[in-house]
Amino acid sequence: MSSDLQSTRERLDAVDRQLIEALADRQELIDEVATAKANNDEAGTDRLANVHDPEREAEILDRLREKAREAGLPPSLVSDLYERIFAHSVRHQVDHLLEAQNPDRAAAEELVVAYQGSDGAYSHLAAENHFGAYAEALTCRGYQTFKEAVEAVEQGEARYAILPVENTTAGSINETYDLLADRQLHVVGEEVLPIRHCLMGPEAVPTRSLERIYSHPQAIAQCSDFLASLDGPAPQTYLDTALAAKKVRDDDDPAQGAIASRHAAERHGLHVLEDDIANQPENYTRWMVVAREAVQCDERLPCKTSLVFSTRNEDGALVQCLGALAAHGVNATKLESRPQLHRPWTYRFFLDIEGHAASDEVAAALDDLRDEARDIRVLGTYPSPRTPGGA
């Protein structure tokens, strides 16, 4: 290696260190902002109103795009980078404010989070992303099934479990909804991540030379168009995406491939044969975080409330239940139906609504819903500052 190239790489390394230090300095300032908001004693709703300020973000992005042009950088590069930074800042402020109301959340020496899958699975990545502020105390523990992850929380082996509930391509994960209804746990948070599926193998071979491709059923469904275009390899279901990658690595058979994240490919030393193979590029999965105890959440934080209810056996019963929400201006963001066990042709409904269960509008809507529904259980109110890929 030439001395000039080595010198240039050393200067690049120094710039990278400066970028990390600058991000750390920025986070310290975000801490100061969050502390100021939490300690502001002014009356009214201004104290937490600007945890997420889209107008200020838009102004900053416009200014930074112009700075990028002046520096000869693509404005889109700066926009993409700062949108991630803003999202992290909002999350960091919400975590700070939650800690103020839930001191035990920050005091734990070890924070164990259960998930279905293995090291490098998407649920593992979602757990690390959601609890990133507690990285030093965080232990993510994988289980073979969603049920086992939930039981870990019930039995005190884990404080939280993170469960996928829906994907923008493949739809809802029914098993999670059934577990939410049958177990006495509380929804205390949500996580939304972009899902970028890759096809990987032990050797850099042509895609059409593969004979078998392993992955989780949800990943296979999300990549069905790509798999159909290959007209050859048979998709094989596996426990999770990361375990599929591990199997392909361990078998070391060039005729085998796996669909998983790029992170899993790197972790298991596999070659990425095709990138971004999902049916649609806007591919997101949403997880719910559950715990034995409900989270205390300030009413002025942007929140969601999740609940499950069943209707009376009457004409128009569901319409009347939803009308109780509409009458109070409460917006529903998700409605899911699931059959009730031992009661053929009867259903329970899962509903996500915007707002805090204790706010005037939502509380009044829930009171009216109780009058209309046969039964209702609020699963939890939790922070929901923004939804990637959404409005």
Rank of each mutant, 00 (worst) to 15 (best):
P217Y: 07
R196K: 12
I213K: 07
N174H: 11
H186G: 02
V205F: 02
A181Q: 08
V187S: 13
E191V: 13
A228L: 09
Y214F: 14
I220T: 04
I220P: 00
T207Y: 01
I213C: 09
G189T: 06
P217M: 06
S224R: 10
A219P: 01
I173A: 03
Y214I: 01
E203M: 08
L163I: 14
N167A: 12
L210W: 03
H216N: 12
M200C: 10
D225W: 04
E203P: 00
Y177L: 15
S224C: 00
L210K: 11
C223W: 04
R196W: 00
E166Q: 12
S172N: 11
V188C: 07
N167G: 15
D178S: 14
L199H: 07
E175W: 01
A204E: 12
V192L: 09
T169C: 12
V205N: 06
Q218G: 14
L210M: 05
S209P: 03
A170K: 09
S215R: 01
V188G: 04
A219H: 05
R208Q: 13
S209H: 13
H197T: 12
S224M: 00
E166G: 04
I213E: 02
P235M: 02
Q222K: 02
I173C: 08
A228G: 10
L163H: 02
S209F: 10
T176S: 08
D178R: 14
D231A: 15
E211R: 15
Q218S: 14
N174S: 15
T207L: 09
E211N: 10
P206W: 00
V205S: 06
L227F: 05
R208T: 12
E190D: 15
Y160S: 12
A234R: 13
T168R: 11
P194L: 05
E211S: 14
E211M: 08
L227H: 05
D225N: 15
V165P: 00
P202C: 15
I213P: 03
E190G: 12
P206V: 07
L193H: 03
E175L: 10
F226C: 05
P233C: 02
V192R: 14
Q218L: 13
L179F: 09
T169H: 04
Q222P: 00
D225K: 14
I195R: 09
E191W: 02
G232C: 12
Q184P: 03
S215K: 02
E191L: 06
I195W: 07
R208E: 13
A219W: 00
I162C: 08
E166S: 11
Y160P: 06
Y160G: 11
I213F: 04
S229M: 10
P194E: 07
R159M: 14
D178C: 07
E190I: 13
I162P: 01
G201N: 06
N174Y: 05
V165M: 01
F226S: 03
P202N: 10
L193Q: 04
L163C: 03
I195Y: 08
A161M: 11
L163K: 04
T207A: 15
Y177N: 05
P233T: 06
L227P: 08
S215D: 00
D182H: 15
A234D: 09
P164R: 03
R183A: 06
D182V: 08
P194R: 09
M200G: 03
C223Y: 02
G232T: 13
